[in-house]
Amino acid sequence: MVFAVISANAGPITTNTALPVNEGEFIFRGQIKYIRATDDPGPLDRELTVWAAPSVLVYGLAEKLTLFGIAPYLDKSMEVTTPEGRRTRAVSGLGDIRVFGRYTFGQRDKPGETLRFASFVGLELPTGADDVEDSLGQLPQPLQLGSGSWDPFIGAVFTWQTLQWEFDSSVAYKFNTEANDFEFGDVASLDLSYQYRFWPNELGEAVPGYLYGVVESNLIWQDNNRAFGTPDLNSGGTTWYLTPGIQYVTKRYIFEGAVQLPVIQDLNGNGLKNDFIVTAGFRVNF
């Protein structure tokens, strides 16, 4: 199960951004994600439903340095065919927490426009339970709440924002490490986002609320998982999502929603394919 690193300050929905956070300011982002994966090419006929509620706290430490912390609440449930018939295996609780810092090393400001380059580095902490059992035994590692391992990740972001539209692109690489004799495959992602303000048409007084139409692209590649050092040939692969969305932005809060639709899923072996991912959320600054 892969979650692209998400940002919280004003900007794209499923992509990171290089937009600034005021020194000493907090931003809180709450999201609900619904993931449905039922396309199982193998004999187990797996049907996966995940509700995820990541909470993100952002803090502007200094003019160019921003800190992020993401704590996901997860509810995973998978229906699977066993020798005894269809069974549901489920688990819910806190997943692995991510913390990272983002540093802006390039900035060009013009009236009503900004271009920014930033890079980020972070760590995913093994806070989610990784050894949950049910009547059928220990849940397979991908279904667990956490990976049990300390996984660092790095990336870079580019943002170009004007009063009319915004473009963000982000590359990230996560080094998944071993725990419980299991190692998830590393993840590389390339995300692009384009937001276009279609209301109000003309900018008027002071600070209005903006309604944006959003279209994003998420390209994710994952390496094979390894159990006891041996690669699992039914894991990993490349997925490309096309993500339409909508976003309402005011001075203090943002409301948004998007659907990630897999356009290409080239998964290894019997990898379970995603049907779609629905995201809805809000952000508030204080």
Partner: peptide, 16 residues
């Protein structure tokens, strides 16, 4: 102010 492109960013300037 240069670099100001959306409402959410205004809050930081006002606060400072």
């Amino acid at each position: 102010v240069d670099g100001l492109g959306c409402p959410f960013c205004v809050y930081g300037i006002e606060k400072q």
